[in-house]
Each structure stands twice: as C-alpha cells, then as structure tokens.
Design a protein around this nucleic acid. Structure first.
Lengths: 189, 189
DNA sequence: CTCATGGTGTACCGATCTGTAAACTTACCT
DNA sequence: AGGTAAGTTTACAGATCGGTACACCATGAG
C-alpha cells in the first residue's frame, strides 16, 4: 500500500468528517466518496476510530502550522502575534467552508474522557494553550498562564459564537477584548 | 395521553441525550431506559428529531431560568449580575454530571443551519446574548451589544475549556477577564 | 512461464438504526 | 354494561451501521 494513498484517504476523510460530523458519516459514504474499495479502506485503517484519529492528527498539524505561521506573518512581537491571532480567526470565520472547531465537535461526539478521540481533541487545545503561554512568557507578562488561558477562552468563545450566531461580531469583539487584556496585564520585573 | 407522561419522557430523554449525545443514542435505548413502549414513544413524538427538539426546549427553559435566578441571587446590580454569572458557571463546571453545553453539542451534531435543531440551538445563544445586552443597557454602558458579546465569548469559551481541559482554570480566568472588561467599558452619558 | 504477493470489487455478516402494523389490556366516562 | 381512547406487547420493515470472507487480478521475481 502506497503511503501517499493513505494520506489522500485521510485528507478526504478529514474534509467529510468536518463537513458532516463523525457519527453521522458512515464508512460506506467515505468509501464511495474516496473511490476506494471498502477492503482497501480497512487495510489502511483497522477501525473507523483509527481513521478519525488519523484525520484529527492531520487537522491538528495543519491547523497549528497555519495558525502559527499566519500569526508570525501578522506581527513580529509576541504580543502582536497574540493579538494577530484574532485577525487570523476572523479570516477563518469568513471562509466558505467554516464549520466551527473540529476538536470541539470531536469532544462533543466522544464525551468519554478515556476515549482516544476525546484525549486527542483535548491535547490539541492543550498545545494551543501552551503556545499562547510561551508567547505570554516571551512578552514578559507576570502571569503568562492566566493571560494565555484568558486569550484561549476568547478564541474558543469566538469560534463557537461565529459558528452558531454568525461570523462578524464575535471576531471583532474578541479582538477588542484581547487588546484590553493585553494592555492591562501586569508585566513582570 | 397524559401530558405529565410526556414531560417525564422529555426529562429522561434530555438526561440521556446530554450524557451520551444525540446521534449516539438510539430510540431503542431511550425506550428501554424510560420504560415506555416504542409505540407509545412514537405516539408522543412523531420522530426522533421531534423528541430532540422537545428536550432542547426543556433544557433551554431550565438553563435560562436557573442561570437568571442564580445571577439575581448573587448580586443586585446589573453589573454585579453579569459578573456573578461566572461564579454560577464555576459551580456548574464543578458538578458531577457536567458535560459542556448541550446547545453547542446540538449545533455540532446538526450542522445544517436549515435544520430545526440547529436553529433551536442558535436561538438559545441569541436569548442569552439578549439577556446580557439588557443587563449592559441597564448598567448604563455606552456599547451594551459589544460588551454583551464579549461576556458571551468568555462564557462560551469557559464552558468549552472546562469541558475539555478541566473545570478550575477557565471559570477563574473568565471571571477575572470579565471584571477587567466591565471596569474598563465606557459608560454612556 | 509460474508463482507469490498485495490491492481490488462484490457480496455478505450480524447488529442496530428509525419507524410502523396489529392485536391486546387497562381505565375511565356515560 | 358498553364504548372510547391510551398504552401495551410483539413482530416486523427497510435501511444503514461497522466490519469481513473470498475470489479476482495485476505486478514483479525466479
């Protein structure tokens, strides 16, 4: 089995899962839409859960790479990058295929914390929180963990609100709130 | 059909849907756990979607009543009530059965905006936003819609983060951030 | 040519899904 | 007593679920 074939399957599955949900998408539909036979699909992925995990891993990698790169491109100070995150989010919300955060959805559909899919989704959020914490440290804030968590709350809230209520308001208000938090957070030393 | 029987079915269904998800819960399980026969269940609710909608309506009513009452109990000024919301949330997060927001989950599992379940979930968020906007107006803030949206973002973010990462941090940081927003928001007049 | 190997399509498995048909029991109302 | 209506059981329909058995076919190696 060619490894690029597998990657292609994961890419396509990711797209379909993101659009239609995990439980609502059957393997039969995936098999039809990828054009591969069911036997081959199960040669590449032992179970549906394995396929979901692979899709989430790809999404995690793509999303974090994209977010981090865009933020670095948007500003050259750690502080500026934290603020730039909300512009990047606004662009995302405005995209046609925007359907909210795939990891929130995964966590919602697989609620058991012992389930690998739930754990993988939580890990994604933990990585984002760690990234924000690192930026807050570099920027010299006195309480980087707290500030990072607050920015994460605004980010997650904005994603949820944009998906449920519309794209415009949440992104703008999240950025305004973030600016206020950054301007008023105490510096160390 | 006695109306209280129907209410009992909705209550039980709500509990099970919240615990296990919508698509992951079959009507057979609901029938077994409620003790009612399948035919009776379908006498009360024409389809599974109807049952989900009834459960969401009950949840909306219960949650908003509970939240508004607790906030009024926690403070007697509009401003104080907005801030008290985050203490109420913290209590909720600490409860045993806490599994995040049912409406975010409903929106995640029924993504089509034309679907009644998605619309109902969005309506719940709109009602909460309206309530916050009213409080912000009463408190005399110059831009009540903006402030209400920012508080809503913190609330939704806190719920998501508490469900995925743990209960403690998000509630505390959301409240701190909210206090800062309230203290720095311009007053009208 | 022969043979092994790995990917393929087809057809299928048992379980579960939402929803229904029909005959029976229970209880209340007049 | 007789009738109406709710609720019951049992059985089932047709579709779809995740997953598999198996025969087929291509390719490359000896």
């Amino acid at each position: 089995m060619r490894p690029n074939k597998r990657d292609e399957l994961v890419r396509k599955a990711l797209e379909i899962f993101y659009r239609d949900g995990f439980n609502a998408t059957g393997m039969d539909r995936l098999v039809v839409e990828t054009g591969v036979s069911k036997t081959s699909m199960y040669k590449h992925f032992r179970t549906k859960d394995d396929l979901i995990l692979a899709a989430l891993r790809l999404r995690d990698e793509n999303f974090r790479n994209w977010l981090f790169r865009e933020c670095e491109h948007g500003a050259d100070t750690p502080e500026g990058q934290m603020l730039a995150m909300f512009d990047v989010l606004a662009d995302w919300f405005a995209q046609d295929g925007f359907r909210g955060c795939m990891f929130i959805k995964a966590s919602a559909e697989f609620q058991d914390k012992a389930h690998p899919i739930n754990a993988q989704a939580a890990e994604h959020k933990r990585l984002l929180l760690g990234w924000l914490t690192g930026l807050a440290q570099q920027a010299g804030f006195a309480a980087p963990e707290q500030l990072a968590m607050q920015l994460l709350l605004l980010k997650e809230g904005a994603i949820v609100a944009a998906a449920m209520l519309g794209a415009d308001g949440p992104a703008r208000e999240a950025k305004d709130a973030a600016r206020l938090l950054l301007d008023n957070a105490p510096r160390s030393g």
